[in-house]
């Protein structure tokens, strides 16, 4: 058996950097390059790195998530965001945003488009991981 100590140690550090970067890209999407799609892909990339360093069973234990459910959740969030506009008597897909003074973060805008993007993010993570996991488990 090979010794993957270096890889595993580096992974432990790097995974969090990638995750942070992906979160940053996700939240920054409305103002700078990025958004749900790339953010989701990068998060998936972090998990793939874990898969490379460890094995499928360990990662599954580490992140006990059924990625098919993640896809469904993402689709649900996006659809609800889109459909939610109808409850306020405006056409579907109408977003709303407002500036709020929030403790710690300060003067910040909250935007329903981010909710939609969250759906995209979850779907992309779920899809990528479903595909890779399915193929990986296949013999």
């Amino acid at each position: 058996m090979k010794n993957d100590l270096i890889l595993q140690t580096v992974t432990k550090v790097v995974v969090f950097i990638i995750l942070l970067f992906s979160v940053s890209i996700f939240f920054g999407g409305h103002y700078s390059p990025g958004g749900g799609f790339v953010g989701g892909l990068l998060t998936a990339a972090a998990i793939v790195l874990l898969l490379l360093a460890y094995d499928i069973k360990t990662v599954a234990k580490l992140i006990p998530v059924d990625y098919k459910l993640v896809v469904a959740t993402g689709l649900l969030i996006s659809t609800l965001t889109v459909a939610g506009a109808m409850f306020f008597d405006v056409p579907m897909m109408t977003h709303a945003y407002q500036y709020f003074d929030i403790p710690i973060l300060g003067h910040t805008s909250l935007h329903t488009a981010v909710l939609f993007d969250l759906g995209v993010y979850l779907v992309v993570v779920g899809v990528t991981m479903t595909i890779i996991q399915t193929i990986g488990e296949d013999e």
Partner: peptide, 20 residues
């Protein structure tokens, strides 16, 4: 739309249906 990244604004707001 309150966004500065036009591409992303188009994707999630102006033409969000396509993305969905």
């Amino acid at each position: 739309a309150g966004g500065k990244n036009v591409v992303n604004v188009i994707l999630v707001d102006f033409r969000g249906m396509d993305t969905m």
